[in-house]
Each structure stands twice: as C-alpha cells, then as structure tokens.
C-alpha cells in the first residue's frame, strides 16, 4: 500500500512541480547520460517478467527492455527494472519514473488517448480466459453463473469480465486484489471458484499452485488482449526507437537472422539483411542510434522467435504454442513493417 501511495505521490508531485520546459526528444539523451535504461515490469509473472533464483529478471517483457538497452546503450544488461502493480504502472510512466513500461499491458483506445501514453506495438497477442478447479466439474465458461471470480485490480480483464457475464445474463461476484500473487492465493484457498486473466498468465499462474494439475483453463477466450510496451507521448524519437526495436526482432526472425548465425549474416549479400544488420544504409542514424543497433539487439537478446521460445515456448514450464504469435508467414499475425 505504501508503494502505491508513494508512486501516486511522486506522480502527482512531479506533475505539480516539474518545470514546464519542453519535454520532447529528451528521453534518449537522459538514458544515454544515465548509462542505464529504467524499465517498468510486473511484480512477478513467470514467462513475462519474473526474477529467477539468482535475482535476475527474465521473461519476454524483460527482453523487450533488454533489447531497447542493447540498441540504445549497446549493453542489454544496462537496465534497471522497477516492479510495478497494475495500479501503479501508468502513473510511474507518466511521472517519468521509468523510461519504458513493458508489463503485459493491453493496448486499448482509452489508454492510448487519455493517459498521455503511446503503445509502441504488440510483443504478445493474448486473450482473456478462465482457470477453474477440476473438481467443480465445469467444462465451459457458460456454466459459471453465480461464481466468485478472483481478479487483479486495474486491468482490462476486470472490464471484460463484467461485459462477458452481463452479456451472458449471468451473475458473479468479483474479488479484487492488487497483485497476481494475491489472486492465486485467493483461488488456491477457495475464496473464489474462478481465476480470470489473460490466458498466458493463467498458464503461468497455474505453475504457482501446489498441484498445477488440479486446475484447468477453460476453452473460451473472451477478449482480445494485445500486450505491448508503452512510452510517454510527446517524445517521437523515443517512441520510434522502442517501436522499431520490436520490429527489428520480428524482421530478424523473418529474415532468418539469429543470435547464433549473426556473424555469417553480417557478410550476407541480401540487401534486406544488410540494411537490418547495418552493413548498408543509415537506418540506425535515422533513429538517432548507431548503425549496428539491430545487430546488437539480435546478438544480445535474439530475434523474436528466440525470445518467445526462451521465455514462454514449449521447452519452458509454460508450454505455450506460437499460435497467434507466429510470424505472418507461418499462420500467425506477427508482422513488422520493412526496414528500408
């Protein structure tokens, strides 16, 4: 509670006291001068942003930050991670406490327009689902009339849940907690029948149960949840850098450039590859970065596919298939504009 209060207080105080000088185009300079990227992540969501046994942050959202740091500072480890609850995240970004928010945040019209923030793209296409205990014998979300539902405060899932139950003519009682850990606790202790969140999160949170096999994810997906990084409005250069960092990773996968074969690819004659790795053209300079910006990203973090498989793929405890997140050439919808 204190952290929320502190985040809100600094947020409001910064808005009140900071000078009214021009805000544009200053994030890149600030990050370069600091020598460190400050990145807002979740308080712990396996596969997306979670500290490992030795305290290092890992996950697909964490890798987005590391990729930006690699592009801007040349060092993927020059990142300071700030764990934020769903409630705190936007205030922390608005007030300038963090440079990028990469915290499984759903891109919506309201958030894009009224918060003074910009979504830079989608690093994970998700949808909301339901997790229930097996012994309830429920096989479809339409059988959930009257259920108690554990949910995290300040999320789009809170709104989708209300819409879904109202539209289906069913009743429910929402039990709202601040962190996803608390929602799992509530679900495990039986305070709620159902845990609802983005499906990827449900798989991740299920691994936190004492007996993960005692719960099932229902087949219904009730919403679109495109998750992506967020930056402040009014700094177009920084917006472009974060946006094209993800595009570079997706393009790298499409062109077959991986962290392993990067050295061979640097010698490639393919003009698309040459533009991406910076052996031709001045793509990096146009972003205000060095010409080998994308090569650094691929070398230190990998392409989009590597990032996906390492954090949430079939070899991880989450075992999520590429599905929607496959490249457009492989039946998915991950698609990036060309680098040229």
């Amino acid at each position: 509670m204190k952290r929320i209060a502190a985040a809100l207080a600094t947020g409001v105080a910064t808005l009140a006291l900071s000078s009214t000088a021009a805000l544009a185009d200053e994030t890149l300079d600030a990050v370069t001068e600091r020598g460190e990227l400050v990145c807002g992540v979740s308080t712990g969501l396996p596969g997306f942003s979670n500290p490992d046994d030795s305290g290092n942050w890992t996950g697909i959202d964490v890798d987005v930050c590391r990729a930006v740091a690699a592009a801007v500072l040349g060092d993927a480890d020059a990142v300071k991670f700030v764990p934020l609850t769903a409630k705190e995240r936007f205030t922390a970004l608005q007030s300038g406490e963090i440079d990028v928010l990469s915290r499984n945040t759903t891109w919506t019209l309201t958030r894009d327009t009224s918060l003074g923030l910009n979504f830079t793209g989608t690093n994970y296409y998700d949808g909301q689902g339901f997790l229930v205990k097996k012994d309830l014998g429920v096989t479809s979300a339409t059988e959930l009339d009257g259920a108690s539902v554990c949910i995290q405060s300040g999320t789009t899932t809170e709104l989708n849940l209300a819409d879904y139950f109202r539209f289906q003519g069913m009743e429910y009682s929402p039990v709202v907690f601040d962190t996803s850990d608390q929602t799992v606790q509530g679900f495990a202790s039986g305070r709620c029948d159902v845990l609802t969140s983005d499906q990827s999160q449900l798989y991740a949170l299920r691994t936190k149960l004492d007996n993960p096999d005692s719960a099932v994810v229902l087949p219904e997906v009730i919403s679109k949840e495109p998750l992506g990084p967020v930056v402040r409005q009014g700094d177009d250069q920084w917006f472009n850098i974060v946006k094209w960092t993800l595009f570079a990773q997706i393009n790298a996968e499409e062109l077959g450039i991986t962290s392993e074969n990067l050295d061979e690819m640097m010698e490639s004659d393919n003009p698309s590859i040459k533009r991406l790795v910076g052996t031709e053209g001045d793509m990096g300079e146009k972003l205000g970065l060095s010409s080998d910006w994308a090569a650094k990203i691929v070398a230190q973090v990998g392409n989009y596919g590597e990032m996906f498989e390492r954090n949430v793929g079939m070899d991880t405890p989450l075992q999520i298939e590429r599905g929607l997140n496959a490249l457009w050439t492989n039946g998915g919808i991950q698609y990036a504009p060309p680098i040229r």
């Binding site: 769903a86 405060s153 300040g154 709104l159 709202v176 601040d178």
Partner: peptide, 15 residues
C-alpha cells in the same frame, strides 16, 4: 480500493 484503485486505473486521472 474502488475509487483510488480501479477507477483511477481505468480512467488514469490521478490528480
């Protein structure tokens, strides 16, 4: 919890 929590987060109008 309701107003300074969920409502604030859905509207973003902290001040």
């Amino acid at each position: 919890s309701v107003f300074m929590g969920t409502t604030l987060n859905q509207t973003g109008q902290a001040v």
